[in-house]
Design a binder for these strands. Structure first.
Lengths: 203, 203
DNA sequence: CCAGAATGCTACACATGTGTAGTAAATGGA
DNA sequence: TCCATTTACTACACATGTGTAGCATTCTGG
């Protein structure tokens, strides 16, 4: 009779902690992209990485801390991309020029790393608090920058807070369009639309 | 000795199916509002309604169909509110007037039924497919209307598709602002901002 | 080459949620 | 009044996910 002898799982390659952590973050990002934030669990990440759950618990204190670390990492990459795509010198220009430069830059940035941007732009309301808070505070920072820029060029008394909200909402949605249908929503189209929108209400 | 005699649960009031269904939909909406879409489960809805799970299964075929029915109901109410707040005759006006009327109307509408609008505006990407699809198709319909209106007043050749996306994104976000901080984001502020945004790019 | 440290695996005890079969209570009409 | 029907409850069999204790394997430095 065929000895059942439940075959022991072949050992996954042994990897030092630091590297394992990176690998697990990669796995988490892949899972998020494939199954959305709902599909993310310690279990799913472990499977994706080809290891067992205790390995994950060895590297992170749980799902919250893991996702938090992931956002840390991706956020750094995202910001790096942002500044690479949009040299700060370009910001000291007129609003119109900023738009002409920024929109294509953002478009390219999103397409250059769709996984990261999907994770950020499409993060639903139900991610762990750490993550939600982090993303919200990042958004607030960007909004602050936009507010400052608006305040510099718009007549005093303008409600820059609400306008900044609106602009960020549009940029956010543009990002989602690009992620969903890159072929359809090209940099040219989006830039042209942005141009039309700021039309005449900016000096 | 105190006979344990596990006390049988007191029977919930007996209610005809049609009414029970309404009651369960109310319970579901309450749960969604309190715990978000993640907190929604057959179990949570049953508890909220003060009945046991089999009762829910007697009324609906599962969570998907239940949420679908909920969206049906809330959508009807929402549309009724929309048309009540914004008489169709108002749409046959100039863009500027439409904005001046529509933004306060939408503001009041959201505040008049926050539960419904939270359920719709804040629905995350991970609701059951039926619900996601329904909400997305509703959004598409509204977008279509916006496109039509834009096409009527903007020069031919304008990219009304992208503009409609942007406008809907802004309205959507305005809704979220109102839901989050009604005191802070008043109808006046939002209307003024909208006025500023359409500023000079509309005839 | 061979401990022992580092790393990974198995197995368990829980927890929450699903869906259903079988049973108990309430209700309304003969 | 009483029984058939309607409605609700209990209890089970699963399924998936968490977190941990203890054992197995691999690797490395003396």
């Amino acid at each position: 009779m065929s000895e059942p002898a439940r075959k022991r799982r072949p050992y996954a390659a042994r990897v030092p902690m630091a590297e394992r952590r990176e690998q697990l973050l990669d796995a988490a990002l892949t899972v998020i992209d494939r199954d959305g934030y709902d599909g993310v669990s310690i279990d799913a990440i472990a499977k994706e990485a080809g290891v067992t759950r205790p390995v994950v618990y060895g590297a992170f204190d749980g799902l919250g801390p893991l996702l938090s670390a992931l956002l840390d990492r991706q956020q750094q990459r995202a910001i790096a991309q942002l500044y690479a795509a949009l040299p700060l010198t370009a910001l000291a220009s007129t609003p119109r020029r900023i738009v002409e430069r920024a929109v294509p830059a953002l478009h390219a940035m999103v397409l250059a790393d769709p996984l990261t941007w999907r994770a950020i732009l499409q993060s639903p309301a139900n991610v762990p608090d750490v993550v939600r808070d982090r993303i919200e505070s990042d958004r607030a920072r960007v909004r602050g920058t936009i507010e400052t820029m608006l305040a510099a060029v718009l007549p005093a008394g303008t409600d820059v807070e609400v306008l900044a909200h609106a602009i960020l909402a549009v940029l956010d949605h543009f990002g989602q369009l690009v992620l969903a249908e890159p072929e359809r929503f090209t940099a040219e189209r989006l830039t042209a639309a942005a141009r039309a929108m700021i039309g005449a209400w900016l000096p």
